[in-house]
Each structure stands twice: as structure tokens, then as C-alpha cells.
Amino acid sequence: MSDTNRPAGATSSQPAPPLYAPIKRRSFFLYAGATAGATALVLAGCDKDPSTAPATGLVNVGITSTNDLGVLNYAYALEQLEAAFYTQLKDGDYYKSLTAGSAEKQILDDLHYHEVAHRDFFRAALAGNAIRSLEPDFTSIDFGVRTGGTGGKLGVLDAAKAFEDLGVAAYNGAGRYIQTPLNLLLAGKIVSVEARHAALIRDLLAEATFVGDDVVQVTTGGPIVAGGPVSATPTGLERSKSPAEVVAVANTFLKAGSKLDVSGLV
């Protein structure tokens, strides 16, 4: 449970990027090695339309008032982050230490495939309306260990859990902004698989934690919907996060210049 909150807690207390960026980048290479540099290049190379965005400033996903482009770009941004994470994970020492054919290696491979498919789905769907390729900042993750990295860093499964649960809560909180039924269904089809991922990673970390009170109203009641009736008993409903709550966490995993602005999602 505390793991979910750790990414936010671990980095949100730090000041804004410019001052810290060089230090972060250095430790980034220290931990992930030369392959991380290659990954960063790959990510940058994914962008066919070279970015002209300034190094600082935010990437605005767009607005919701006229069409679904803003919310689709929001989903695209989160899928970029997840795909980049699993891509880098596969270059990391923990993944490489797994026995070929082991259950955990297969799972991490599949999660990587799915997230890449999601990312490229949105990239294709958005075409010329897509935001730029984002540059991740995974300095708070130790890709060499399964859980509990030194110095408060996340292990790979800790981070996977954080990303998957965040993704589910994000789609969940963004459903209300989607206007066309096709896009609503597409979001549902994707997030349903994200929920399966989240449950799987949680079960890998601790058996039978596929739902926890941090992600589902398991032991507590509460408002069933915003402004709706309040249930005194557990509802068994997934918890959701607003775009602002989501980017507060997501931006801690994005480099300066790639951090997201979701103020248009209203």
C-alpha cells in the first residue's frame, strides 16, 4: 500500500527540475548503465516529428471542450510512460537475471508487449494530433532489484505496481471527459487489461493483494460517485484519480520539458 504512494512521496518533496536535473541524470546512468542511454535514444527516435518544444515548460495534452483529443493524448502520455518503463526494465539487471522461460520473465515480456501496443495504438489513432514523444526520468527506480532499492528507490516490481495502479485510476478518472462512445469503449478495453496487470503485479508482490483498500473500496464505504449517494458499507468499486492527481505522480517520472499539463481536462 505504501509502495503506491512512494513515487509521489519520494520525489515530490524535491524542488523543480532544472537545479537537480544534472545530478539526477548522472545517477540515472550510474544505475542503469550505458543501455539506458540507448533506450533514451530509442524513445527519442520514436518521434518521427522531431520535437521543437523548449527544454523546459510543460507538454499540454489539450482540452476536452470540443473533442476527445485532449483525453486521448492524456492516455497516450501515460501509455508512453508505461511502455518506456518496461522497455528500460528489459535492459536492467533484474530482468536479465531472470531464468529464460521463468514465469516472471514471461509476465514482464507480456506486459512490455501490451504497453507498447497501447502506446502505438494511441500514436496511430491520434496521428498528427499526437503530443510529442516524452522523455522519462526513472532515476527513482533501481532496475537492478525486484523490490526495495537502496536509498528509497523503487524496485522494478514496486514501480510496475505504481505505474499499473496509476494507469487504472487515471483511465477511471478520465472516463467522464470522453465524449464519443467508441473512445469510451476503447478506453474500457485498454484499462480492463491494465487492471489485470495491476492485479497480477500485486499478487506477485504479495499473494492475494490483487485488490487493496488503496485501489478499491474494500473495507470502507464512501461516495459511490461524486455528488451521489454515500454508501456506509464497502462498495467494491475501484478508486479513481483526477488528471491533476495523476500527473502529480506521473510528472515525477518525466524529465523537464516532458512534464504534463492537464489543465485543459475539465
Binding site: 487504472v168 477511471n172 472516463g175 467522464r176 462512445p181 469510451l184 469503449l185 474500457g188 478495453k189 484499462v191 480492463s192 487489461v193 487492471a195 489485470r196 496487470h197 495491476a198 492485479a199 497480477l200 499478487d203 492475494a208 490483487f210 485488490v211 478499491v216 459511490i224 460517485v225 461524486a226 455528488g227 451521489g228 467494491g236 468499486l237 475501484e238 478508486r239 479513481s240
Partner: peptide
């Protein structure tokens, strides 16, 4: 997922049904 398209005109109800769907997916995964 199959019923979601029929609930889109009521955002509050859709929101709640969406949140139940996700829990069903977690159950299936487990």
C-alpha cells in the same frame, strides 16, 4: 464492457459501472 455503450448518456452511472468493471478485471486476473 458490452453494456458501457448504453450507459454513456449518464456520466455518473457510467463512472460507477466503469469502476465495477475494473474490479471484475482484477478478479479475473486473480
Amino acid at each position: 464492457l458490452g453494456q458501457m455503450p448504453f450507459l454513456t448518456t449518464d456520466k455518473a452511472l457510467f463512472d460507477a459501472v466503469f469502476r465495477m468493471q475494473l474490479v471484475e478485471a482484477r478478479h479475473a486476473s486473480h
